[in-house]
């Protein structure tokens, strides 16, 4: 168990538990590295990595770029809004042109489900999925798993509630795959319109009552309402959503235990979570962000180490 079983990180669905263990374990050593006075190691100094963001991002993009720089890789950034994509170039042409300039690894976010899988079949470079539409966001799930493991000690048997807009969330799907593979229990909670039918077949519980989920869980991962992906009305108003499904300090204090609060960001304060809950000592939202850099360093280090042979 010291090499990944895959050349690309396309989704948690496509990797096994050994891979997840290896990534979490390697990330632990990288977390020590990024807390040193000199936060940089020379591992990937002969690699060039392209970050292709066809969809907006702050956290993930900065996190990937920092991770790459701390591994001493050369980085090029690309965003669709300022590129030839606007002139009508296809995805494959864009990527092939970038690869022709000798790029070794691609980190890609795209609004279309399956875009990284499509590329993986066509090109040689390692591909890391940084989010494809409403499908998967594997690095987020891995950093969430790492953050839970760091605070709780292990993942097996931990009860995690994922609350909010499950239907449009790639974080939710990747988290479900990752947590169930690692032996954690998962419950989804939110309005019935935002929870896909038959999602129980992935081995998760479903409730439409947020209080019930909070009473059941050890960790609550709260998701943003993705208005940009909602073509129709799934609930009457944001105010009503906040009233019935929003997490507040009062609800957390009414529980007979202290649960951990997570959020993949960006937060809509006052909608899915109130400010006093997001900033409470139970919240590990900023730990997640710190761990994100370590996880991404681990993934790129492991993929790079594998690809040479």
């Amino acid at each position: 168990m010291s090499a990944l079983s895959t050349k690309h990180l396309l989704g948690i669905k496509y990797i096994n538990t050994d891979d997840i263990h290896l990534i979490l374990q390697t990330a632990k050593e990288f977390k020590e590295v990024i807390n040193r006075p000199i936060k940089k190691v020379p591992s990937l100094r002969d690699l060039t990595i392209a970050n292709l963001f066809f969809e907006n991002s702050t956290r993930t993009r900065i996190s990937f770029e920092l991770a790459q720089k701390r591994l001493s890789a050369d980085v090029i950034n690309f965003s669709a809004s300022a590129s030839s994509v606007k002139k009508g170039e296809t995805l494959l042409d864009t990527v092939n042109n970038i690869l022709a300039m000798k790029v070794d690894m691609i980190v890609m976010r795209h609004s279309s489900v399956g875009a990284p899988m499509f590329l993986a079949n066509k090109i040689d470079a390692n591909i890391i999925n940084a989010g494809d539409g409403t499908h998967e966001h594997p690095t987020q799930a891995l950093l969430d798993a790492y953050s839970i493991k760091e605070k709780v000690g292990e993942l097996k048997g931990v009860r995690v509630a994922i609350i909010g807009d499950i239907r449009h969330s790639r974080v939710a799907l990747s988290n479900i795959y990752c947590l169930t593979k690692m032996g954690a229990e998962v419950m989804l909670a939110g309005p019935p319109t935002l929870i896909p039918k038959h999602i129980e077949s992935l081995g998760v519980k479903v409730t439409y009552n947020v209080k019930e989920a909070l009473e059941w869980c050890d960790v609550a991962n709260i998701l943003r309402i993705q208005l940009e992906r909602q073509d129709i009305k799934y609930f009457p108003t944001l105010r009503e959503y906040a009233l019935y499904y929003g997490i507040t300090k009062e609800i957390l204090d009414s529980l007979n235990k202290k649960i951990l609060i997570m959020h993949p960001g960006p937060i809509n304060r006052g909608v899915e979570i109130s400010s006093d809950a997001a900033d409470s000592p139970q919240s590990i939202i900023l730990d997640q962000v710190e761990n994100g850099v370590a996880i991404r360093m681990a993934i790129m280090f492991l993929l790079a180490g594998r690809s040479f042979t």
């Binding site: 090499a3 290896l22 990288f30 180490g305 690809s307 040479f308």
Partner: peptide, 22 residues
Amino acid sequence: LDITFYRDDFRRSDKAFSPSVT
């Protein structure tokens, strides 16, 4: 001191490296 991330044979040998604690 763990030296895994500093090795000069990373990506040049068949060995897979797993880091230890620093």
